[in-house]
Design a protein around this nucleic acid. Sequence first.
DNA 1: GGTATAGCTTAACAATTTGATAACTTTTAA
DNA 2: TTAAAAGTTATCAAATTGTTAAGCTATACC
Lengths: 225, 225
Amino acid sequence: MDFKNNKILIAEDEPDILEILQFNLEMEGYTVVTAKNGDEAIAQAKKHQPDLIILDIMMPGKNGIETCNLLRLNPAFSHTLIVFLTALSDEATEIRGLETGADDYLTKPISPKVLVSKVNALFRRINKDDNSLLQFGDLQIDRERYIIINQGKDIILARKEFELLALLASKPGKVFLRNEILNQVWGTEVIVGDRTIDVHVRKIRQKLKLDCITTVKGVGYKFEV
Amino acid sequence: MDFKNNKILIAEDEPDILEILQFNLEMEGYTVVTAKNGDEAIAQAKKHQPDLIILDIMMPGKNGIETCNLLRLNPAFSHTLIVFLTALSDEATEIRGLETGADDYLTKPISPKVLVSKVNALFRRINKDDNSLLQFGDLQIDRERYIIINQGKDIILARKEFELLALLASKPGKVFLRNEILNQVWGTEVIVGDRTIDVHVRKIRQKLKLDCITTVKGVGYKFEV
DNA sequence: GGTATAGCTTAACAATTTGATAACTTTTAA
DNA sequence: TTAAAAGTTATCAAATTGTTAAGCTATACC
């Protein structure tokens, strides 16, 4: 799951609860920043631009609802996920929170596991379909954007090159026979010469500057990191 | 709030609860269709293409979780909002439900007002992403008002130009295939010549004086800031 | 209702990029 | 050692896109 790179800001005045939440979300792979009250939360939000903000409603100084209102006024946070967390199971507060523009509302006591699941579900909702992105260490293959990113640098491959690489990378380690490659990338109709695949492989190797395509002599090629 | 035109499918076997939910959501301006069990829910979903599906977990025949799994397998519903509704406050079930790919989880008893608020919040989020205005640095695209603003200056695009740009900008970075563009901007009925898209792209580039549309040769176009 | 205007599409051609091949060299495995 | 397979390079053809101008269409305006 690659949405786990997302950043979460937790604003909670009770240190114990804060620590439990932070620990569990970090275990899940999220980056967590924290705040002890509303003002600090706003400052941290501006500094770190989190993808999700968890606001305790009962906090000293600015409470969660006021904080949410202020954040939503800023265009930078108009799309940020905001979730309230509170011990109040008071219905009026809950409704007020949601009308304020929060995306969800969690009632304490909530188990860390449930929290993590809810957070995952929220991100799943906004991250739409991320099945188009393959990642291997420093190498990213983004099928949707049709680019390769290696060590932060964009690499542009021509269509055939890209499709060939994407095919090999779709099953790392698997050896693709020349025939398989021809069928998948060129289709069964087209007939091309013997050296065509080699030339494309060469160009990929050249552009990527990375030894990720291995030749299996007499058989085919495979992708390996 | 224009998202109130949205359609909601409720699957719930207890007629009393079903009626209360339906009544309250209709009062709020939503269109509601109903189902009494999982199979019926799937049939209704296919028929009505709802924007949100509320699934009771405990239902005769297929339960809510199974139903959700089946729906998510169908690409037509892979992005549809799904919310579980159940009397179980059992933690394991809750987690299982969320991992299944539901977007939220509501525990009975839930007051109609809270339900309505949660539903509103869910729609607020997805509508925010789809509609309203997109902003990329100095460039603003206001889909509602059909206006582009670049560095404070209004730029007037013709309708096709605007729709093409708005489509590309709706997913920055994503490469839209020529076919996708034709389907989205022109519709599946209309057939236009090969160079039509290019000409519109050229005009957009010319008017915006900004290099924000990238050609991916042999594939399509993408919007990038 | 007629005319002006902007918008949309197309055709024709230019420019560019991509892909395939030939011809040759190098590597590999038996 | 030696075929067979794969690598390399330059070159040319083909595919794709960019550009421009012109014609058609719908809409607005008088």
